[in-house]
Design a protein around this nucleic acid. Structure first.
Lengths: 340, 340
DNA sequence: TTGTACGCGTTATCAC
DNA sequence: GTGATAACGCGTACAA
C-alpha cells in the first residue's frame, strides 16, 4: 500500500548493478552503456525515483533553502516582500523558510541560531523592534562570521557589514511633506513610532528637512510618537484635539487611517480641511474612504532584489567581501486624501 | 577570520579522542568519564559547537520542517493562518517552509514534488483555484501514498483522505444572511466567486438556505459571480444598478468594501438604505468606513489546529489511518455596516 | 563499461 | 571508559 520513496540502493539491488552505476546512468553519464542506461532510466521513471534533497544537501553543503526572518507576517508590506523573495528564489530553485521574530529579540536569536546550523544557505531579514531597541547585533555578527550570507532589508543597521536593501525613507517622507506644503498646508503633523526603529527615524528626518527647507520651523508638539505598531486611537484623538493641524503624515497606513477616522468624527472634511498621507501603499490605502494618498515602498521589488543579492553571494565561490546597499526610490501614490 | 562551523570530527581530532566519544560526551552519556566529558563539553562550548541539522535529518529521516503551500500570501486570511502554524510549529521545534502556488495548479504540483523529496515531514495546504477548477488531485494522492502526512485547510476537497480544518462556511453565510433578514432586509444580494472554489460554494448554499428557511425565494439575479479574487468594480456597480438591494453579503472583505464604495457613490446611506456583511474579519473590515460587519474565519486558530494535527501525525509511530475533519464555528463581528 | 571506496556529519551498536 | 564500524542517501575519483 505505502509506496515508500525509492533510493539508488533499491534500484541497484533490483537491477543487480552497483549503486554508482545507477547514479551515473541517471545522470546520463557517457561512461555507462546505452543498454544499462535505458534499463535503469526506465526503471527509475517507473518507480518515480527522485533524489533525496537532504542527502544532496549534506553532500554539497548546500541546502537550496533561504531563511527569511521578519518581525511579523500580518503586515502588508512584509507580505509583499515575501512574495518578491519567493518569486525570485523559486525561479532559481530555492525554497523559503519563513520565521517570525514577533518583534522580539530573543525569538529572532533563537530562530537564526536554529537555521544557521545547516538548514539554510543564507538569510534575508528585517530587524525586530526588540533588536533595534536593544541595539544588540551579535547574532548577526556570528552568522556573517561563519560565512553565511546575509541580506538586510527595510529595518537595517549600520553595525553589520552585509548587503542591504531599503527604500529611501527619508526622501519618501520628504516627498510627502513637500506635497503637503505645496498644497499650502501650514500645520503639518507627523504620527510616528519610537525613534529606535530605523525607518521611523529616517522618515522623521525627511519630514523635518522638508519643513526646514521651506523656511518653516518644526513644532515639536506636532509630532506624535506611538509605541511600535500599536494603534492607540485615543492618543491620536487627543493629538488632533490639542493641535490644529491641516495635514498629517503618518509612518504607516494604519496610523493614517485611524487619523482620518478621528478627523472625520471631529467633523473635519478630508481633504478640504485636512490632508492625510501614509506610508506603505497597501490594501488599506487603496480601499480606505477617501482613498489614502501614500508612499509606496515597493515591497515586492525589494524582496526580489534581496533574493537576487543573496543568491548571488551564496553561489559565488570567491570570498572577496564587497557589500552593496541598494536604495529604492519611494513613490507618491496620490488618492483622495490630499488635494489635487 | 572565517569561523567555520565546527564538527564532531574537529573536536575529536583536537582533543585526540574518537568521534564517538565526543558524540557521547556531548549527550552526557554515562559511559564517559567525568573528566573527558568535562573537557569535551568545555571545548564544545568554547567553539560553540552545534550539531548539523542536515546530518541529523539524514540520520533520523526527520527534517523538523513543515511545508505550507498556499495560493497567495498577500491575503490577510492566509497570513493569519501562517502565523498560527508558525506559532505552534515553533513551539514544537519545527520550521515552516512557505510555498506560494499563486493560484496555479502547475506551481502547486512543482512545489509539492520538490518538497516531498525529503525536505519536509508533512504538508499543510489550501488548494489553489487552479487546482479546484481542474479538479485534479493526483499530486496530493502521491504525497499521501508515500506516507507523508497532509492537512488541508479552508480550500479542501473530498477526493483526498486526510486531516482537514475548515470553518463552517455554509453556517457562516447562513448566520450573516439571517442577521440581514432579522434587520428586515428583503432584497439581499450575494457577491461571490465561481462555484469551483469550495468555500464560495458552501457560502452560497448558506445564503440560499437562510432565505429559504425564512420563506423567501432566491432571486438568481441577486447573485453576482466574479472571477476568483479579482475585484471588478465595474461589475459590482452594474450589479447594484440593475438590482435594488437593501443588503449585500460578500464572500470576502474586498468585494464588500468595493460594494460599499459603489453604494456610497450612488448616494445610498450605509446601513440605513443598505447593509453590508463580508467574510474574513481582517484589517480592511476593521478600518473601513463604516466599519464592516463580517464573519470571522479564525485564521490563526485554524493554523494552530492544522499544525497540531500535522505534527501529531508526523510524530505518531502507528500507521492506523484515521482522519479527522475539524470544523470551526465562524463568528459574526458586528460593526457599523449593519443595523443594530 | 562497471564497480569499489570514500566522504558529507551524525548516531547507535558492539567490541575492546 | 573508549573507540571502531556501520548506516542514513548520494556523488565521484579511482580501480578493475
Amino acid at each position: 500500500m505505502l509506496k515508500q520513496k525509492i533510493t539508488l540502493k533499491h534500484i541497484a539491488k533490483e537491477l543487480e548493478v552497483s549503486i554508482s552505476t545507477v547514479s551515473k546512468a541517471l545522470k546520463n553519464s557517457e561512461e555507462i552503456s546505452r543498454d544499462t542506461k535505458e534499463k535503469i532510466q526506465a526503471f527509475a521513471k517507473l518507480y518515480n525515483y527522485k533524489p533525496n534533497n537532504i542527502a544532496i544537501s549534506l553532500k554539497n553543503k548546500r541546502t537550496k533553502n533561504i531563511g527569511v526572518v521578519i518581525p511579523d507576517i500580518v503586515h502588508h508590506f512584509f507580505t509583499t516582500v515575501i512574495r518578491g523573495i519567493e518569486k525570485y528564489a523559486n525561479k532559481m530553485g530555492y525554497n523559503v523558510i519563513v520565521c517570525l521574530s514577533d518583534e522580539s529579540f530573543d525569538k529572532e536569536v533563537i530562530n537564526m541560531e536554529l537555521l544557521a546550523n545547516g538548514s539554510i544557505d543564507g538569510f534575508i531579514m528585517s530587524l525586530s523592534s526588540g533588536t533595534q531597541a536593544k541595539n544588540d547585533y551579535n547574532h548577526l555578527k556570528e552568522v556573517t562570521e561563519q560565512g553565511i550570507p546575509l541580506v538586510l532589508f527595510d529595518r537595517i543597521t549600520n553595525e553589520i557589514d552585509c548587503d542591504k536593501v531599503v527604500i529611501d525613507d527619508q526622501y519618501g517622507a520628504f516627498l510627502a511633506t513637500k506635497k503637503l506644503l505645496a498644497e499650502g498646508r501650514k500645520q503639518i503633523g507627523l504620527i510616528t513610532t519610537d525613534d529606535y526603529l530605523s525607518v521611523s527615524k529616517a522618515r522623521t528626518e525627511g519630514y523635518r528637512k522638508a519643513i526646514a527647507e521651506n523656511g518653516g520651523l518644526v513644532n515639536e508638539n506636532h509630532i506624535l510618537k506611538l509605541s511600535s505598531m500599536d494603534v492607540d486611537e485615543v492618543a491620536i484623538k487627543s493629538f488632533l484635539d490639542k493641535t490644529n493641524l491641516d495635514a498629517v503624515l503618518a509612518v504607516n497606513e494604519i496610523f493614517a487611517i485611524c487619523g482620518m477616522r478621528v478627523a472625520k468624527e471631529k467633523g473635519l472634511r478630508i481633504p478640504n480641511d485636512i490632508s492625510f498621507i501614509g506610508f506603505t501603499d497597501g490594501l488599506l490605502s487603496k480601499y480606505a474612504n477617501p482613498g489614502l494618498t501614500s508612499i509606496a515602498q515597493h515591497g515586492e521589488e525589494m524582496g526580489e532584489i534581496a533574493a537576487q543579492m543573496l543568491i548571488e553571494k551564496v553561489e559565488s565561490e570567491n570570498e572577496h567581501e564587497s557589500y552593496k546597499t541598494k536604495i529604492l526610490e519611494p513613490t507618491l501614490i496620490e488618492r483622495d486624501s490630499t488635494l489635487n
